[in-house]
Simulated assay, not measured.
Amino acid sequence: MSIGNSPEDERPFRDESQEARSSVGRALQQARIAAGLTVDDVSRATRVRIAIVHAIEADDFAPCGGDVYARGHIRTLARAVHLDPEPLIARYDAEHGGRPAPTPAAPLFEAERIRPERRGPNWTAAMVAAIVVVIGFVGFTAFKGGDDGDATAQAADGATPTAGKPAVSATPKKEKPAEPTAEPSDSAIAAAPQDKVTVQVSAVGGRSWISAKDHNGRMLFDGLLKQGQSKTFQDNSKINLILGDAGAIELYVNGKKIEDTFKPGSVERLTYTKGDPVAG
């Protein structure tokens, strides 16, 4: 009788707990076989590729593309072979370092809150400012154009007095007289053109109201001529005059003085042509 351990007693003890706990892939494979399913059946039911199913059952999770996808495939395959996926997920996390710690929500919120906001240019304000500038420019142009037009019309219709003798109208005019822009001087009267009729009206004896029209009836002047003032009118064929106080007026027609004697205070209606001087 020998004292000591028998050869059987010297054999290493087997860890029954290690063998009892099968791996994630082994558990899925055994459950698939127990359910009577092939790898093709599981692939068609879960839409997980056959190569990935084989890899997972061999505990090779690299083809899954990451822990997140690996957990998703484990959960899908477990449900297809009628296993509870949560223990398998927990086992996978324990074997692969566990789930990553979740990022605290508060720091993210604070970072988002304090992050400066990037603003682009305010195109609406720029467009409104541009429209205001354009409207102001158009309005200014229209106003300026209106003033120029009025000034041009006044220059065309207004009377131009003889140099040194400003024409003053004491009474309001019913219509603007249209007179020549430049009046001939005394020397010009003396050398009046033969193809026109030229009439100079001078208030030498006092003031007198006068009216002058051309052959078309267009008003050349209608107003008061003060003593010492003169007006000269030209037309292609005819000048029609009305003298309110003919006795105070001295007339030159086509460079020649009219010798008619008009009575003071008399009103005379006269017409002169290129063939005058002959009092009309």
Score class of each variant (00 low, 15 high):
A20W: 11
S22F: 00
S23L: 03
Q30L: 13
A35K: 06
V39Y: 01
A45R: 01
T46S: 00
R49W: 07
R49G: 15
I50Y: 05
E57P: 06
F61K: 11
P63L: 03
C64L: 06
Y69P: 09
T76S: 07
V81W: 03
A90T: 15
Y92M: 06
E95F: 05
E95L: 10
E95V: 06
G97D: 04
G98E: 13
P116K: 12
G120C: 04
A125L: 15
A126V: 12
A130F: 09
A142D: 12
G146P: 02
D150R: 15
A151V: 11
T152N: 03
A156N: 10
P161I: 02
A163I: 11
P166A: 00
P166E: 02
E175C: 01
P177Q: 02
P184W: 09
A192R: 08
D195S: 12
V199C: 00
I210S: 00
I210N: 11
H215R: 05
H215Y: 12
D222L: 13
G223Q: 04
L225K: 01
Q229P: 10
Q229R: 07
L241W: 00
G244H: 00
I249F: 06
E250W: 07
V253H: 01
E259T: 05
F262G: 08
S266L: 03
V267S: 02
R269F: 10
L270A: 08
G280W: 03
